[in-house]
Design a protein around this nucleic acid. Structure first.
Lengths: 213, 213
DNA sequence: TAGATTGTTAATCGATTAACAATC
DNA sequence: TAGATTGTTAATCGATTAACAATC
């Protein structure tokens, strides 16, 4: 997929979903082709950066024409690995876990929540949509039997590392971590953090210093 | 607070909450002083970067000694604007809005959820903890009467820009946006996005390409 | 063909790391 | 004092932007 074996920088990777989002919008509006210059105007990256970014993965454009919106949308989806389904479990069935279980957009993109896990007896047995909350004791067994790809950690920070260790032992492929702590996992396990308070504190910094970017 | 009037880069700003988090942990463990070298080992930034980062805001350390953990923790809190309280409202009382309302950690850091707003008659009048869900029609009035600093957008992407426009008109100071879209706000209004699907797609990229960082 | 726009190389800019004099 | 470690300048590295030949 990517050209040669050059390592793609995280900066580029994190821009890809945004390209895909704007391309989806163009598709909706019935736009069939777009130049890097026009895309630059709506997405806010420089045209040069857009061409550089895309060229990490191949030549999707055509000189004198630009890019085919549908084809590029499709290609970026594949690059991001959105051309397949992922089985996921949510660990921690509190408010955040339930909110994620209820958020059907992820499922539409191919991330299927198969089950939730919790230690609270009051929650075990309940269902969010059709997703059952199961006793956390049965997590390892469930992961192996159901081919779970991604574990979503929605516990508090105290329990997060122990959960991560158990996910790793069960051969999980990726962890999406919402607990406000940094997890230690072997490098073969992919880890993505959502540190909400860090985001909020960044906003509060900007408010205090009245930064205009 | 910051040295001279040099512009602090976003890269530095986004590292500050992580410094604060690790310093809090050290405080808990009763550690009173730490050198950039030791901190480097636990936080994973280079000692050089730590010293550079902190020196953007002043000389908090002492040669031959290192940094006083409590004093540095305090100082970073102030830099981040965590030495005061912020009145916030949550717009959109669906699952995500409710999860945020229930997450008491933000309140502990000084971000007080004063009210929630929704257009759904079934939700209006309900309370999450002691936070009332109010008819969205009354939002502008409420913001002005209650000195609201931050609006947290938890609507779907279709409604997000209209909500942002109304928040801006009501003189909100900052917006924390969870809707999966980019908002257009005047530069005097600070904006911080939490794009969950972009984070999830990044994880899926890493899974597909088996990246080891 | 002439015009438009890519793909790609080169130049610039900014962020990170290294080095070390200052100093506790 | 001697050792440790900062604050800060200089060097390096990486990411972004500019430029333009290739080409549709």
């Amino acid at each position: 997929m990517q050209k040669g074996n050059a390592k793609i920088s995280m900066a580029v990777i994190r821009r890809l979903p945004k390209y895909r989002r704007y391309l989806a919008e163009l598709l909706d509006r019935g736009v069939h082709r777009i130049s890097s210059r026009e895309l630059s105007k709506i997405i806010g990256f420089t045209a040069s950066q857009i061409r550089q970014d895309l060229n990490n993965f191949g030549g999707f454009g055509q000189q004198g024409y630009g890019y085919n919106v549908a084809a590029l949308y499709e290609a970026i989806g594949k690059i991001l690995g959105l051309d397949r389904k992922y089985n996921t479990i949510i660990v921690g069935a509190g408010n955040l876990g339930q909110a994620i279980a209820n958020y059907t957009n992820f499922e539409k993109s191919g991330f299927i929540p198969k089950a939730m896990f919790d230690i609270n007896p009051k929650l075990i047995g309940l269902k969010i949509r059709d997703i059952e909350i199961i006793d956390a004791d049965k997590m390892e067994e469930y992961i192996k039997e159901n081919n779970v790809d991604i574990g979503i950690i929605c516990t508090n920070k105290e329990q997060a590392q122990a959960v991560a260790d158990r996910l790793v032992k069960s051969n999980i492929k990726g962890i999406w971590n919402f607990a406000p702590t940094d997890l230690d996992v072997p490098e073969k396990v992919m880890l993505e953090n959502v540190h909400l308070s860090e985001s909020l504190y960044t906003l509060s910094f900007l408010l205090k210093h009245n930064r205009i970017d």
